Simulated assay, not measured.
Amino acid sequence: MTVSALTPRRYPEPRAMLRLIKPITWFPPIWAYLCGSVSAGVPLGGNWPLVLLGMILSGPIVCGMSQAANDWCDRHVDAVNEPDRPIPSGRIPGRWGLWIALAMTGLSLGVGSLLGVWGFWATVAGVIAAWAYSAEPVRLKRSGWWGPGLVGLSYEGLPWFTGAAVLLGAAPRFEVVVVALLYALGAHGIMTLNDFKALEGDRQHGVRSLPVVLGPEVAARIACTVMAMAQALVVAFLFVLGKPWHGLAVTLLLLAQFAAMRVLFRDPKGKAPWYNGTGVVLYVTGMMVSAFALRGLV
């Protein structure tokens, strides 16, 4: 082994910094922000700068910041679950993980201020939620109910609301808020399935995720029930709003998810990553269908 291999790094590895903010996690808030922009009913042609800035803020900046904060606060858990992650592996040494998270917190607030009053205060709410989820003494991720609920609200409901509010320059319509909240509720199930990958470390460090407390089989059924019920309520709401074709489209997407759920239930722990690439795609497709239904109400 060379001397350089034995010497701890002084500065973060650039590739590890990118992995720290996890680009793969940016899609849900970006997509939700776009859904919110569509649902506002405002012409998008002349507002693309605001839409694109909001999508960048929601994904790479705020979501990236939340991932950096989570990895810093979870560095001991990750040393058990995934020791090759940037912080426990030493590729991001010392307190650099914390400094990156704090710097991105400041960047989030700065960029959020460019989106007006609604955009700024929504960013403040997102930043608070990110740190409340991961950091002591609050650390809501210890709860299998409150943790996924907060993430679902932050990843789906808050960006949707913000996308609409920024374009409107005012609070979105009641119908928009209802649909955003329903999809945020359903995202609780998505986040529960995401907890399957950290079972061993969560057990050792007292994180009471639903897969830890109830076991993978029961947790998977609860997650899928929550996702399905939220979408069923969306379908009913769309029919009430006089959008039957959009409601039918979301129904078909939900039926396709039922087929994927049957596969998931055969091996919840092993199939959770597969379901995130199939059933969740169908879920977020229904989000955009619903956004266009709301847009048609204006």
Rank of each mutant, 00 (worst) to 15 (best):
P268R: 03
A272W: 00
L241E: 07
A32W: 06
M17P: 02
L168T: 09
D74Q: 05
L158V: 11
S113F: 14
G54Y: 01
L294G: 09
G59R: 06
S134G: 06
V51I: 15
V281I: 08
R15E: 00
L238W: 14
L255C: 04
L140G: 10
V138A: 13
A291V: 02
T192D: 04
G116W: 02
L57Q: 09
M227L: 13
V179R: 08
L254D: 00
V284A: 09
E136A: 14
A260S: 13
G201S: 02
T162D: 14
S113Y: 01
S37V: 08
Y283R: 12
W131E: 07
L167N: 02
L20T: 07
A184L: 15
Y275F: 15
S39W: 07
V234S: 07
L53A: 11
A230K: 01
V234P: 09
L6T: 06
V177S: 15
E217H: 15
N276Y: 11
E156K: 03
G163E: 12
L193K: 05
A125F: 08
V289A: 11
T162P: 15
A79L: 10
V3S: 08
L214Q: 02
V212H: 05
P244Q: 04
L150D: 00
W26A: 10
W96P: 03
L153N: 01
V42Q: 04
P49R: 06
R266S: 10
P273E: 11
A79T: 07
R75T: 03
W121K: 14
S39Q: 05
G215L: 11
M55Y: 08
T285I: 13
S154V: 09
G206V: 02
A236H: 00
P211T: 12
A184W: 01
L185H: 03
G90R: 14
D71L: 05
T105R: 01
V263Q: 11
S209W: 10
L193S: 06
L18P: 06
M55G: 03
A236K: 01
G144V: 05
P273F: 09
A101M: 02
T105Q: 10
R295G: 02
C73V: 02
G59M: 12
P8E: 03
Y33A: 13
C63F: 14
V284I: 15
W274M: 09
S37H: 09
D84L: 09
V226L: 08
R221I: 05
L233K: 04
A129R: 00
